[in-house]
């Protein structure tokens, strides 16, 4: 193996639009992969100077620490509404609303749907890990039937708690959204697909096309009580059966 770095070319390094701060996520949490993908996309589109990231409430609440971009940390669920206001006030900004499932699909349902229905020219990344991560693993609207959480200790029962909500499919019924897709991060191919989808969602906004939503199936090894590799396998075997991957709307 050549040890002389002069004979080697660097083919992968930390995106320039990310700070040196270490993430606060648990080991194996795929939020970290998304952070890297977003940083890489901002680098590739060269939009760091005019990107504004909306940090939600949830595990990603510290998102403003990790990007060399402007950021706002907003009230729980209201990221899409704040994104609307910021984008309308300064249309030159590239606004990313980064939200988890408890934020986007539960407490923020009204804001999320109406921002999509108005076709706001924003990019939304919706991280679906089927659980409220930060507060200790409670049931989310996206929790699978039979899945054990701290508030459904014997598994989610449809008669009591309803069914897992396919939020992206709901958004896809609307006329306004330009791009709605569901991606995952369980292997390198999926990570590359998700990278393409996120780049497209940003490009749509830069080109003024309108609302783009990228739902990303992520793991929560801590609250799923699985090893990170087993959690990725669980996404393949179980989660994608309930939340199928692929583009739902592409009017770009």
């Amino acid at each position: 193996m050549p040890t002389d770095l002069d004979s080697m070319v660097k083919v992968f390094s930390r995106p320039k639009s990310l700070t040196e701060a270490r993430s606060t996520y648990c080991p194996g949490c795929q939020h970290g992969i998304l952070t890297r993908i977003i940083g890489q996309t901002i680098d590739e589109l060269n939009i760091a100077e005019r990107t504004l990231i909306i940090a939600p409430v949830g595990c990603s609440v510290f998102a403003y620490l990790w990007y060399r971009c402007d950021a706002v940390q907003v009230a729980h669920g209201r990221a899409s509404a704040v994104a609307t206001g910021i984008k309308r006030a300064d249309p030159n900004l590239v606004v990313l609303s980064y939200q988890g499932d408890g934020d986007f699909a539960s407490i923020g349902t009204a804001e999320s749907i109406h921002a999509a229905n108005r076709g706001e020219n924003i990019t939304v990344i919706f991280v679906n890990n089927q659980v409220y991560g930060m507060t200790g693993g409670e049931m989310a609207p996206t929790t699978l039937i039979g899945q054990k959480t701290t508030t459904t200790p014997s598994g989610r029962d449809a008669a009591m708690f309803g069914y897992p909500i396919r939020f992206s499919e709901m958004i896809a019924q609307l006329d306004a959204p330009v791009y709605v897709t569901r991606q995952a991060l369980y292997d390198t191919k999926r990570i590359m697909d998700a990278t393409k989808a996120i780049k497209k969602a940003f490009t749509n906004q830069v080109e003024g096309k309108g609302y783009s939503l990228v739902e990303v199936l992520a793991t929560c090894p801590t609250n799923w009580h699985m090893k990170p590799v087993d959690a990725s396998r669980h996404v393949v075997d179980v989660v994608t059966k309930v939340y199928p991957l692929g583009d739902l709307v592409d009017r770009g």
Partner: peptide
């Protein structure tokens, strides 16, 4: 592949020229 998968961006990759 390792660097793409790393959630903590702890890996840098070099390749022979």
């Amino acid at each position: 592949f390792c660097a793409l998968t790393c959630p903590d961006i702890a890996i840098e990759v070099y390749r022979e020229k």
